Structure formats: C-alpha cells, structure tokens
Simulated assay, not measured.
Amino acid sequence: MAPAPTYRLLAELEVAFDRLIECTESLLEVYAASPAEAWAFQAEASTDWLRRALLDFWYTDGQDGRATRSHVGLVAADEPLLTKVAEVNAAKAEFAAQLAHIRDNHPPLLAEAKAVLPFRHPHLHDHLRGSGLARLHLKQCWRAIPVAEAPVARVRLAWYSSGRSIKRLTVREVEQKLLALDSDAPHVRIQLRKLAALPSSEPLAQVQSQAPLMRANLFYCEPLEDGRSRRAMNVALPLFLPAPRGHLPDHNLPPAAPPQSRTRARRSDEKLEEHPYLPSLRIYRYR
C-alpha cells in the first residue's frame, strides 16, 4: 500500500487530469455549438479534427519518448471560445505543476500515474487500443494551446528546421555527465582522457538539434500597448485567433514538408567547432 503522502500526490494529480479533460471537453462543446472559420494543415478542419488535436495525449507504437506530434491549424475564436481556451491552458499549467512536483520528489510515482490516469476516462482510452495508443504522453497533455493576444491582420506560417539548443557547460559539469554514463565503458574512458587534457577553465557547449517545427508569424491589426506590431510563435497545436466576426485573417499555405537544407543564415553557434569533441554527450569546443 502506498504511503499516505504518495497517495495524496497521486490523488491530486488525478484531480488535475480530470480538470484538464473537463475543460477541454467544455471548449469543444462551445466550438461545436458555434463553429467559426478554421484551417488545418494537411487535414480537413472540423470539430472532429479539433477534438483529435486537443485530446491527443497518447504515444503511438514506436514513438520516441522525447518527440511530440503536431496538429497545426488556425481557429477563429470569439470571446466565449477564448475564455474556454484560457481555462484549458490554466488546467494544463496546474497539471504540469503537479507533475513537476512528483518528478522532483517522488519520481517512481510517474510510472504509476501513466498507468492509472488513462482509465479514469474510458471513452478517451478504449477506442484507441486498436491503434496502439494506450500509453499516456505526459508532455502532450500539458503543452499549452497557442493563442494570439490581439486581433491579427495576417498570419505567415513557415517551417523552422535549423534550430539547435546550445547549453554552456564547465569541464567539471561535463565530467560529471560522462561519469554518469558508465565510467568503465571503453568509449567513456577515452572521452574522460580527452576531457582531462583541457584546461579546467575552458567553456564547452552541449548541442541538441531540434526537430523541424512550424512557426507562425503574426501581424497584428494594431500595435500592442508595448509597441509591438508582430510576433513569432511555435505552433504544435491549433492557434486560436481573436475574431469577433468568426473569420480567419489572411494566411498562407506552408510547404507540405520542411526544407532539406538550411535556409537561414548561419548564426553565432558557428563559433563552435565543426565536429563534437565528446560525441557521447554532443559536447563541442568553441573555436
């Protein structure tokens, strides 16, 4: 039997998950009652499409645990619908906070949560069994729905496929990461020797290539209070746009697939050497 604090944490997480589902269902009911203009990337925009996008909380067979599926689209939203989107995002934030607390204090409980939560809503879970979608994907649960903060005159969608996440590390921090792999493995010992040859003060960079993603460039009808007239945001879920009259702003049709080669100018990350110094951790030296 689980200790009382652990049981309480799981119970609180279940409540947060229930709240997330209830808020999402409420949003979908409002949209279905008065559907406005919508557009879906490589799909037919409909209430069913929006339901699949907003309730896609599951792994597919063979899916990389770090990857998430995208559902790119645009939805014209009036005030009642925008209110529902805000409620869903608040529920997602609460769910994410509960998960973070469990991850930091009771990590083994995450596996139990993934097993228990889907069965609280059989109507979501049962019909997915035949499609290999039986495991809960926590990140797909809590990722926020994108919303424009003001009416938009036009939207330009484009693939962004040159992204790299670069984290600056010290030699000591890299050494700790290498030792955490397996200090007895030959390839790790080789890299530890290479690391030992560097000055302890030399900064290093850990690089992670990011998967291609869709980015929306929003051009507002009027400048915002802070003077901004445009904004760029990543859109993995349908983007809700304030539209009192129910019409979408002008928007383009992006290519079906991301470009095969880099289309943006090379940036400051080219200060790194061309090849990783420590391949196991994707550690690069600065030029």
Rank of each mutant, 00 (worst) to 15 (best):
T60H: 03
D182N: 15
Q63M: 12
V72Q: 01
W39F: 00
R51W: 05
Q42I: 03
S162R: 09
E22V: 10
P146M: 14
K84T: 01
C141F: 09
V75P: 04
T24W: 01
R103K: 14
Q210S: 04
A86L: 02
K84D: 05
L198T: 07
D126K: 08
S26N: 06
F240H: 08
P212E: 04
A32T: 12
L82M: 11
P276V: 10
L278R: 08
P80R: 06
A153H: 07
S280Y: 02
V85F: 02
Q176K: 15
A196M: 04
L55K: 07
I102F: 11
W58P: 02
R287M: 09
Q176P: 01
A196P: 10
R129V: 12
L198M: 06
R266Q: 12
H275S: 12
V171D: 05
P223A: 00
E225P: 01
P80V: 03
C141M: 11
H251D: 06
L81K: 01
L213Y: 02
L81R: 02
E270S: 14
Q206W: 01
A91E: 00
A257W: 07
L128H: 15
A4E: 13
R172P: 05
A36W: 00
I190S: 09
P258H: 15
R287N: 14
L218T: 01
S161D: 15
V174S: 07
I102P: 15
P107R: 08
R120E: 06
W39N: 03
Q42P: 07
A115H: 09
H187P: 09
R129W: 10
H187D: 15
R231Q: 11
L253G: 06
H275P: 00
A180Y: 02
P249C: 09
P5C: 13
A144D: 10
T6M: 11
L28E: 05
P146N: 03
Q140S: 13
E175C: 10
D48R: 09
H251I: 03
A205V: 05
N252I: 04
P108T: 13
A232C: 02
L195K: 00
T6Y: 08
L128N: 14
T170S: 15
S229W: 00
V75M: 01
V88P: 11
L213E: 03
M214H: 03
L9V: 09
A16Q: 04
R189T: 13
P118L: 09
E173Y: 02
V152I: 07
K194A: 13
A111C: 05
A216L: 00
S268C: 11
G62V: 05
R267Q: 12
A205D: 03
H251K: 03
L272D: 07
P238E: 03
Y286M: 04
L138E: 13
A67D: 12
P223I: 00
R231F: 00
W159D: 10
